[in-house]
């Protein structure tokens, strides 16, 4: 007997996010992203215009070369997809990886 609740793997959540920190998605932010993504059971895919990569692989995330202002699509598939998307969106757009935004850098350099 299968109901929708019995097939949590079919849950899909998506978000479009913009990289806001001045240095972009370099290794440290990419690590933070992978650390959070890896806490979830769901599969996480991150795409730019050209590539789709595994959001739980630091090497693949580094291949996005996502500079400040780049828009990325995050797609999660699995039971905890929505929570994963919420946490990742907060990391990228609200916390901007705990790094300065371009406007913060001016004047302090």
């Amino acid at each position: 007997m299968k109901t929708e609740q019995d097939s949590p793997e079919k849950l899909i959540a998506e978000a479009s996010v913009e990289i806001k920190n001045a240095d972009g998605l370099h290794m440290r932010p990419a690590m933070q992203f992978v650390d959070i993504a890896s806490k979830f059971e769901c599969d996480i895919t991150v795409s730019n215009d050209e590539n789709s990569v595994d959001g739980k692989s630091i090497m693949q995330m580094s291949m996005l070369a996502a500079t400040c202002g780049t828009k990325l699509k995050i797609k999660a598939e699995g039971a905890d997809a929505q929570e994963a998307i919420d946490d990742l969106r907060e990391l990228v757009e609200k916390k901007h990886f705990d790094e300065p935004k371009p406007e913060d850098a001016s004047g302090t350099a």
Binding site: D23, L25, H26, M27, A65, T67, C68
Partner: peptide
């Protein structure tokens, strides 16, 4: 030039 760094890493 953070963008150059990202491109080299990529």
């Amino acid at each position: 030039s953070p963008d150059r760094h990202l491109q080299a890493m990529e």
